[in-house]
């Protein structure tokens, strides 16, 4: 994994992006939302930010066992 595709800016080097967190199950308690993480060998659902680009927040689906990126979308829908 050396690049990520920002839906807004296109394919950019990994170093432009910052990972923030793996998402817990939706709808859990505030405790679960803050502290718990769901780990699956083949699917990780994550928040990233394109800090050195558009600074948009991204929802990224990845396979943490292979490093493959399965999909990237802007968090909260289309471009601002």
């Amino acid at each position: 994994m050396t690049r990520l595709v920002c839906p807004f800016c296109g394919a950019r080097e990994l170093g432009e992006f910052e990972f923030r967190k793996t998402l817990p199950e939706p709808g859990g308690t505030p405790f679960a939302q803050v502290y718990e993480r769901i780990e699956r060998p083949a699917l990780s659902v994550e928040h990233w930010q394109h800090v050195e680009g558009c600074r948009g927040w991204l929802l990224v689906h990845r396979n943490p066992s292979t490093g493959d990126v399965l999909g990237t979308e802007l968090l909260g829908g289309g471009p601002l």
């Binding site: 679960a32 993480r37 780990e39």
Partner: peptide, 16 residues
């Protein structure tokens, strides 16, 4: 260990 949490159905405060 994160996967063990998933295996037991108790998510842990762990990221790998």
């Amino acid at each position: 260990s994160g996967l063990i949490g998933t295996m037991l159905g108790t998510p842990l405060p762990i990221e790998t």
